[in-house]
Amino acid sequence: MKIYQTLVAAFSVAAVLSFAAGSAVAEPKDPDLTDPRVKRYIVGEKYSGYVVNEPETRDIQDDDFQNPAFLWVEQAQSLWSKADGKAGKSCESCHGNPEVSMKGSSASYPKIHKKKKTLLTVEHQINICREEYMKTKPWKWESDQMLGMSALVRMQSRDMPVNVNVGGEAKPYFEKGREFYFQRRGQLDLACTHCHVDNHGNKVRSEKLSQGMPTGFPTYRMKWQKLGSLHRRFRGCNKNIRAQPYKQGTPEYTALELYLMWRANGLPVESPSVRK
């Protein structure tokens, strides 16, 4: 009995100690939001992943030459005016100069396609153009051409605020996306919200959690050593919590993209961004 009591006492002391130690080394919850450098990417309580980035990573994103994503963008610029498929058309035949025709367009994506009545991302729209108007094969979601083209299109909305519509016909998709966001999943039984709403600014292992704002995609991620799509990032997140990921471009991820974009409403588009 005496041994038992000593043990209990020892444990409670240890518990108190570890709690005290835990609170003493706890890092501040939020990243440094007063840094003048990150001011552009903070709107109200929202901030983009740029804010939790290391300064060195920000340097790469800020210089359009150093940003390796522009290798893909330059490739897409030459693809823009290259005719492909049976119709003998290029992007340029319909849209002209991307800097004019695509300006601001992607800030409202994903959105409802007028004829198809479904929710579509920029990537879906590019492939619709390819299949229906150019009469050629669609690009694979994670191919260099697709990533470059979607970066080129999104880049034309750079620094413009995200403005997606979640009412009307988009409403059911939005609800589906929200449900996904709050749904616990995987072996770790976590929902998106547990990391990106409750714990942003805190660390998960060695990495600072962001709010999960999708404004910078497609993004050049150092870990990937290449440009990657938002849906690839979703797959990574899902795998990290040991859940079965969906495929890129599935309705689940498209609905989730809409929900995330709605969360980011007001933040500037920063594609193509650079992340760790």
């Binding site: 030459f65 522009f70 290798l71 893909w72 330059e74 490739q75 030459s78 693809l79 051409q145």
Partner: peptide, 9 residues
Amino acid sequence: MAKKPRIKT
């Protein structure tokens, strides 16, 4: 289609 090197001079 290969990606071209980018050079600034």
